[in-house]
Write a protein that binds this DNA or RNA. Sequence first.
DNA 1: CGGTATTTTGAGTATCGTCAAGGCCAGTGG
DNA 2: CCACTGGCCTTGACGATACTCAAAATACCG
Lengths: 261, 261
Amino acid sequence: MSRAERRKPPRATPCKLTAQKKLASVPPDILDELESLCTARAFERMTTIAHAGEEHAYLCVVRNGVLRMQKTLADGRQHIVGLLFAGDMFGRVYDGPPAFDIEAATDAEICMIPMRPFEALLQKSPELDRIVLINLLRDLDSARDWLIVLANPRIMSRLAGFLLMLTARDEEAGRQLSAGGTVSVLIPISRVDLAHLLGTRVESVSRAFHALAETGCIDIRRPDLVEIRDAEALAAEAGDDLASQNAALSEILEKGRAGGG
Amino acid sequence: MSRAERRKPPRATPCKLTAQKKLASVPPDILDELESLCTARAFERMTTIAHAGEEHAYLCVVRNGVLRMQKTLADGRQHIVGLLFAGDMFGRVYDGPPAFDIEAATDAEICMIPMRPFEALLQKSPELDRIVLINLLRDLDSARDWLIVLANPRIMSRLAGFLLMLTARDEEAGRQLSAGGTVSVLIPISRVDLAHLLGTRVESVSRAFHALAETGCIDIRRPDLVEIRDAEALAAEAGDDLASQNAALSEILEKGRAGGG
DNA sequence: CGGTATTTTGAGTATCGTCAAGGCCAGTGG
DNA sequence: CCACTGGCCTTGACGATACTCAAAATACCG
């Protein structure tokens, strides 16, 4: 079923873009045009949303769920270079085909706007253009965050970095942590995918999880659900440079230090 | 001396931006305005060009030399997240302060355009805006290339990937390789920096260099100058996914395969 | 020519990758 | 309702690789 849905995305419904606070600065008339162009579509887990080498026909905004950007190698192995969460955009305006596939890591809903009309709108609205540009800058920062995480020689440290970045993405989690409490993080991808993302093997990922649990940093509730018990220890394990470098993350740790002792 | 020059860049000279083929599609009148705003400045090796946390006052284009983007950690260690070569742009339009320092890895000349007037020009010229946008997309691809290189578990493979990306950046080198010949690549950063970039230690980098020399992939002329003897073997070592994924690189290898046997 | 920074080499230890087997969970079919 | 099956996660053992510490060799600069 999911394979058959690849080329014809299912369940097109109108989409309320006004909910996206990212788009707050866009003038109402442009926003109206955007909404008329935009359809929300649901994708099942494991379905491919965009293929590497095929020009993006849509500019997309993730409404909910998690997407993964990946390169599928000749031998069938997959290499993940990033994850996309709610609010993230993708689709390369003005440019040629992408180098990566986009797949739904979980069931996901996506706002899709046909590319050509979107580009036309981009030229009409400097505000919208700015948002796209700033969004790209954020993506770049995010990719460089990943570089720092991956540059860490120890797998356990890389996993710590991953967990922190996952937490930083989620405002809700941030609030709970800064209240001095613990927070549960849902890990949206399998161990295999996580291994690809961290540049290692499944077994090492598993061992790293349990090593972090051993030191009291985390508590493994389910394979895909961990509780952050000591965010600071986790940050220390990740190398601390990560925390000092990521604004959202350092804010969380800062608050946690003040509130939770 | 070099420390003193940090805040007041030396030797401001007018700058011919028409030479940048990237800017070919910009209308002449806009280009004139750009050139009147732009001054070229020379930076000595090791001098800081932009500080993390300080908003960029200039949009910059590298004329020659190599720059490194890095995070300086609390304990003084430095972590490199990318290199900038001739033609590369940096400076975040519309956005807040950057998370990384920019330092000259070699002596370098840089075109600097004051940010506010540049942003004004950006709103006047959709062509210029597009160029900035597409440039960002390229940076993003480049960062993701790095992710794939860094995800490789073996240091020797990461070094192979680094050398190939270095070669792919340099059109001259590409041409020589595609003629079936060998090509010498100047490594613009020290072993320590390279170790930081590859997420490992100096000793391992050194060993990896000599391991690649042992297998005949490269020839070490000087510590900072290696000759690529077998680009294909290097690509195989780097994992091949890198080559298939990077357009410039695969083109070079393609030509080399056809021309040099 | 001497002093310094960088690179290289060596030995020992920790970590990770590989191969193999076992356990847990959900979905399937009796 | 229960046994079976397949996918995913975990654990164990062993060899390969990389990190740490220490020291020597080389290149660079005045």
